[in-house]
């Protein structure tokens, strides 16, 4: 039986992991490879690296990070952030990433999903969706540019289109829940997961192990992503897994 995946997410800027990562026992908390190894050791099923570099130099450095991580790690990893063209995907995938995640670029140019899936196979293409509930719309609206820009797209319809265009997976972030630590947005996760035939990664709102159980059992998520609760050691991947295993969720 396929297991549910726990996915730590690391923000990388100019080749270094940023945003308050607390790992006292690590020599260098900012080294992406060392952190990746740390999470691998805890039983992380997959990793996501989000490239938040704005500069050209920073992006070039990211390719080096991807190479280094791929050399050291025998678990799959996804790279997102700043991927705007087929050429960007090639660079990242050839450097050893298993998947690339497209967000704003996919909304601006949906053909990019199709092109990427045709060229590399659907399994390499993750479409990341930032979703926020919209009263007027009576549903969730898609946001781009790191959640700053509302679009005309409705989340479920966009998720379906992404899947039809060949996306292999949806990385679904709830902007309403993100950073609140009150749990994943179960309604949103369930609605999207039941609307597409590809795996859905729930993201945004993880505060404790129970929240992961909810995302899998009630939210029908295939994977769940979190950053700060792992970085700040509020819990660990191993703890989450042993807790949700008791709740009947199948994990590795």
């Amino acid at each position: 039986m396929l297991t549910k995946r726990i996915v730590p997410c690391l923000d990388v800027k100019d080749g270094r992991v940023v945003k308050g990562v607390q790992f006292v026992q690590l020599r260098d908390a900012g080294d992406p490879v060392e952190l990746a190894r740390f999470y691998d050791g805890q039983g992380a099923d997959e990793l996501v690296f989000l490239d938040i570099s704005a500069s050209h130099e920073g992006r070039k450095t990211m390719v080096e990070v991807v190479k280094a991580v791929a050399s050291e790690l025998a678990i799959p990893f996804t790279v997102g952030g700043g991927i705007n063209a087929l050429e960007d995907m090639k660079r990242i995938l050839r450097a050893g990433a298993d998947k690339v995640s497209l967000n704003t670029a996919a909304v601006n140019n949906p053909d990019l999903i199709t092109e990427g899936a045709n060229f590399f196979g659907s399994q390499c293409i993750v479409v990341a969706i930032d979703a926020k509930y919209d009263e007027e719309l009576g549903s969730w609206r898609v946001y781009t540019h790191g959640g700053r820009t509302p679009t005309d797209l409705e989340v479920i319809a966009w998720a379906r289109e992404a899947a039809e265009r060949g996306a292999g997976e949806i990385l679904l972030t709830s902007m309403d829940s993100d950073g609140e630590k009150k749990g994943f947005d179960i309604k949103l996760t369930k609605a999207v997961s039941e609307s597409v035939s590809i795996p859905v990664i729930a993201s945004g709102g993880a505060g404790n192990a129970d929240h992961f159980a909810d995302a899998f059992i009630d939210g029908k998520a295939d994977a769940a992503l979190a950053a700060s609760i792992f970085h700040y050691k509020e819990t660990s991947v191993a703890e989450v897994k042993s807790y949700i295993r008791e709740k009947g969720v199948v994990v590795r």
């Binding site: 995946r5 099923d45 292999g168 795996p199 295939d222 590795r252």
Partner: peptide
Amino acid sequence: MYKVPHMGWN
């Protein structure tokens, strides 16, 4: 119904 691809740890 179930999801295709078969993606993940089995």
